[in-house]
Amino acid sequence: MRLVIDERRCKGCNLCTLVCPYRIFRPGTTANRRGVIVPELDRPERCANCRLQRLYGRTLCGVCQMICPDQAISWEEEGACEPVKVAIEY
């Protein structure tokens, strides 16, 4: 699963940066088209929910999503890996 911040909803309050136990959010640096400085993700693969939600079949932790006053945080399915042809030379 992949954590996404919906830029259309985020108002840039940065509460997510405060509550995440893995510190995967950090304040953004540049304003988006709506003039909102949306937080950035820092190695989100450290998030337990990203890694283990599928395994446990339920949301783990999820505090960032719950505290987000603007309903801007969610997880989405990651696309299956594209098969890549790798030529191995012997």
Binding site: R8, R9, K11, G12, C13, N14, L15, Q65, M66, I67, C68, P69, D70, Q71, A72
Partner: peptide, 21 residues
């Protein structure tokens, strides 16, 4: 209807999340 009218950082949105959850 989202995003809602609450200000940046307003806690009301959080309470709605918790209640709906």
């Amino acid at each position: 209807r989202l995003p809602h009218i609450y200000c940046v950082g307003c806690g009301n949105g959080t309470v709605i999340n918790c209640t709906l959850s």
